[in-house]
Amino acid sequence: MSPEVAHTTGSQAHQRPARLKAAVIGAGMLGIDLAHRISASSSLTCSLVVGGRNSVTGLRVAAEMGCATSTSGMDAVADADVDVVFDASNASAHPSHWADLASTGVLLLDLTPSSGGTMVAPTVNGHLAESGRHLSLVSCGGQAVLPVLDVVARHCGPKALQYIEVVTTAASASVGRASRLNLDEYIAITQYAVQKLTRDSLAMGGAVKVLANLSPALPAPAFRAEVAVVVSGVDLDALRADLEAATVAVRAFARGYEVVSCRVDGDMVRVTVAVAAEGGQWLPAYAGNVEIINAAAVLMAERHAAARKT
């Protein structure tokens, strides 16, 4: 990746389309995988990776990829004059990042579980990326289950869902320190996103509950999400067909996404999702949680870039 690639507006390069310049905040597993994906994108270029003092290894990897690196936080982001910022830092730090960027023209994609931005999942409401300036990717669990719940909600109709429960299990090695500190926020924002998305379909008083497991099993298992919805009168065959279509749409950007099963169990519909990482050379296969949120974020930035050009 050549760092001197032209800024998007103005001078159009002849050999390749102009790319939006992106900065990544966070040099953990999420941040470095993002840098890889941005570098591989035809409409983005990774101009900067910002890390904390403990991110020596991550920043070295980013530098080896040809990205500029810094430990100077948002000052470095401001100096880099970028079009897009991916925030993979910490939920508690995110609001100040938005405060710094709100008055600029920069697109901010939030990969931390903090509330504030417009919550997006590519196959559910990805069009919002075209006009949005502050987008929240919700959470890895949110990206895994929102496509499923969107289908279930549309399928069952208004006020039909009595209760929704989501349980995610990530491999220990796929979850970094910030994510561990942010477990409460992960649960809160995933619950909030599910509530918001299924608003019209959730019965009066219908609750949403999210639980999160980290598995120490070795070899590390792929990311899993279990969705249970209390609802009656489901046409299982029709639901399965709709889920199949939704899965195909998600697999277009996250190849390791799979609906393992969809079944009716008493007054419940249960859907099991597994997500393996297949889209990058860098991520281990078990880290499907990292892949799905990062692939979604890059796709949203690309969609935003395309809309800017037209």
Binding site: V167, T169, S215, L218, P221, S261, R263, R270, T272
Partner: peptide
Amino acid sequence: RRQAVAGQEDLIAVVVR
């Protein structure tokens, strides 16, 4: 064999299947 941990009750259905 799968080293299921507490909280992973959803694995029971997967194993049964």
